[in-house]
Amino acid sequence: MPYITLESHLPGITGLLEYRKDSAQPIRELTQFLLRGPSSLSEGERELIASIVSSGNECRFCTTAHTAAANMLLGENETSDKALKDIATAPVSDKMKALLVIAAKVRESGKSVTNEVIAAAKAAGATDIEIHDTVLIAALFCLYNRYVDGLDTFTPTDPQYYENLADRIVHHGYTRLPEGYDHLKKTISS
């Protein structure tokens, strides 16, 4: 049972974003811009940053959802499987490895981001905007993970739930559905 009363058909973050819509709005818009807006990082790469940070924070809801989204966007599971286990040997570019290392440091603390990890990313070709967006995506998921787990929201165990959620965030994005979420009432049993 979550620590506060949330709609039972909306697990994880989805119930929180409906609980208080005025605070949800800037969080949704920030996420939409960072993960879906114009960027030299692909949507799959940006979802992978979200997934790695959530995994480090042991937030099962966010990890499963964003890994499913990354897999859908990349068209395979191997990259996320390997990256979540070990960034150094993951099948991604050297630039992406350096950015994932920065994201993992941000997760620990802003102060853990050293001149060396920044220099390594720049040497691998990362631009200031890519570094900025990596840091902010990682910081944003430190918000999400704490919001979701700090209020002890419901975490579904059915993989199909996350496939449906990934489908929504890949094909619709992070803005609120115009019709709301009442149509999901029959699909979740909690």
Binding site: S109, G110, H132, V135, L136, A139
Partner: peptide
């Protein structure tokens, strides 16, 4: 916010 400010 803290991670954003110090991380950069």
């Amino acid at each position: 916010f803290n991670r954003y400010v110090d991380g950069l």
